[in-house]
Design a protein around this nucleic acid. Structure first.
Lengths: 223, 223
DNA sequence: TCTCACTACGGGGTTTTCCCCGTAGGAAAT
DNA sequence: ATTTCCTACGGGGAAAACCCCGTAGTGAGA
């Protein structure tokens, strides 16, 4: 029997990686890369202009401008027929579970064999879901079955979070945001609660892991 | 005139990325991937067993087991004829400059066009060096011309650094390392000086940026 | 031999972070 | 209507982080 061509979108900020993996998975003709995009915003724009909707979306989490979380939320809301395979560079359980919670259908880390990507795409196309061996974690299942609700972060919390990942003191952060130091502490406390940490250091590391803040060196540093 | 085949090594922990990019750059036959490795240790082992030495090495920085820095130091010491093209996922000036300081001949971020990788390999093969537009930074040139010496980190400093990226207090870190809290503070102070920061938060972010510590969420967290 | 870097500590101090306790207004959802 | 969440404050206090000031031994290298 003839197999239909699977149309995919590939959303990743690393063009060379995209081109490379696309070259590999397209070589048999079974899979066609219909849309390539370098971040979520780029993708959603191209998607809204497209004549046909791709079957599957390979989606990275950590991207500039618009990350994988926001992209997946939009996708789930407006294009639920597009099934997402999260393809991420590091095996961060939390980040992956978050994506599953937002509606992704499968995930792979980039350290997988390239053929596995094809297998996963075909599996999602046929069965609607792809479970790698990592999917056995209890956290994963709790989220999949909606037993845990994922915390969302407000604008204020994101602002404080970003400024927490600098050398600024809370007093200085307060000045930047034009609120009192007590308010900054209050917002920080809700971040602590949501992320289940107790120190600023852990908060910031956590945010980096989740891909919520970029991890660049403090501006003043020379080496 | 017939062009010689360029033999390369490709060292990156993401197998799918390696396969993908390799598929792309090998398609014309000009470049041959002679060695593939998933980290520095894996690479050096394969290199020492190889009959012929590759001309060029595509080297990632952030890898498990043995990172790009250590790998490049070994390479410069024992296989100086292998010219390194650093191929890294994020444009971290500090990390790149560090690699140049250790003897790498060029660098690219993975967000480049895949064809650029070919161009860079050929440029390094012919001219010994590849300068992307990022190479104009003053830091880059200062390091290239040995005007700045790169800090190295001692075992003790690395231990403290790793423990600093947890929720542990200095007193608890001291207990773990079986030294006094004052000693921990002393080691932390030398880390502060070397990295030119003043807070633990900045120190840890910096270390993540340099790829010196893995960025995983604190163990206790649930989400 | 003399310096230099690393490690290990201590005294004594300031600043920052973190943690309680509150109050209060506004917006959204039930 | 009432709850729930976000935001914005404040008082007061304990703990941690940060910053000087020292001393001292060790081992590597000039």
């Amino acid at each position: 029997m003839t197999q239909p061509i699977i149309n995919i979108a590939f959303v990743d900020d690393h063009e060379s990686v995209r081109t490379g993996i696309a070259t590999f998975i397209c070589r048999t003709g079974r899979i066609n890369v219909q849309i390539e995009a370098k971040n979520g915003k780029d993708f959603l724009q191209k998607l809204s202009k497209a004549d046909t909707i791709p079957d599957i979306c390979l989606l990275d989490i950590n991207m500039p401008v618009m990350n994988g979380y926001e992209t997946q939320m939009e996708l789930t809301k407006n294009w639920p027929q597009v099934k997402t395979l999260v393809l991420t560079s590091h095996d961060a359980e939390l980040a992956i579970c978050r994506m599953i919670g937002y509606g992704a259908k499968g995930f792979l880390v980039k350290s997988c064999n390239a053929s596995e990507i094809e297998k996963a795409i075909i599996s999602i196309y046929n069965k609607g879901i792809y479970h790698s061996e990592l999917a056995r974690s209890s956290l994963f299942n709790a989220i999949l079955h909606k037993q845990i609700k994922l915390p969302n972060f407000t604008e204020q919390e994101m602002d404080v979070l970003r400024l927490c990942s600098t050398q600024l003191t809370y007093a200085e952060i307060a000045k930047k945001l034009d609120v009192s130091e007590k308010s900054v502490e209050g917002t920080r406390n809700s971040l602590f609660r949501k992320m289940n940490v107790t120190t600023r250091t852990a908060l910031v590391l956590y945010a980096v892991e989740l891909g919520l803040i970029p991890h660049h060196a403090p501006a003043n540093s020379e080496l």
